Amino acid sequence: MSGAQVLDIARDGIWVLIIISAPMMIVGLLVGVVIALFQALTQIQEMTLVFVPKIIAIFVTLLIALPFMGATMAAYMNRIVDLIITGG
């Protein structure tokens, strides 16, 4: 296995990581912005108000996106296993 192939595998791994984590990060960002707007409009400055809705939203997103995440990780693992079996 050459250095270029190792870099390709690492690059693909980073992309898989970004693709898998993107739904939860986007939902966390959106919920955070909505709550920040709500706090700014109502002048409620409670620090713990952000955590519970954000945790619940990320958990629900995780449950919804779990099949997609599993399929993406399985496809990446299959590519790596094929490279191992064929020898590069």
Rank of each mutant, 00 (worst) to 15 (best):
G87W: 13
M25F: 06
A4K: 02
G28P: 01
T72S: 12
D12N: 12
M47H: 09
A65W: 08
I58V: 15
P53H: 04
L49I: 09
L41K: 01
I58S: 09
G13V: 03
L83V: 00
I85W: 03
I35A: 11
T86S: 15
I64T: 12
F68P: 07
A75D: 08
M47A: 13
L30G: 10
A4W: 06
V31G: 02
G13C: 11
S21A: 11
P53K: 05
M69C: 05
M69H: 04
W15H: 09
Q39A: 11
I20A: 07
I26C: 11
V33K: 07
T48P: 00
D82N: 14
G28I: 02
F59D: 06
L83D: 04
G32V: 03
I85P: 00
L49E: 00
I44F: 13
G3S: 13
A40Y: 02
P67E: 00
I44E: 04
A65R: 14
P53T: 04
N78Q: 15
M25Q: 03
L62Y: 13
P67Q: 04
I9M: 10
I85K: 14
G88K: 12
V81N: 15
V81P: 14
V81Y: 15
A36V: 14
G87S: 11
A4L: 09
Q43W: 07
A22S: 14
V34L: 03
V52Y: 00
I84K: 01
I9W: 06
M47N: 10
Q39K: 07
V50Q: 13
Q45A: 03
L62H: 14
I14M: 10
V27D: 06
V34T: 02
G3T: 08
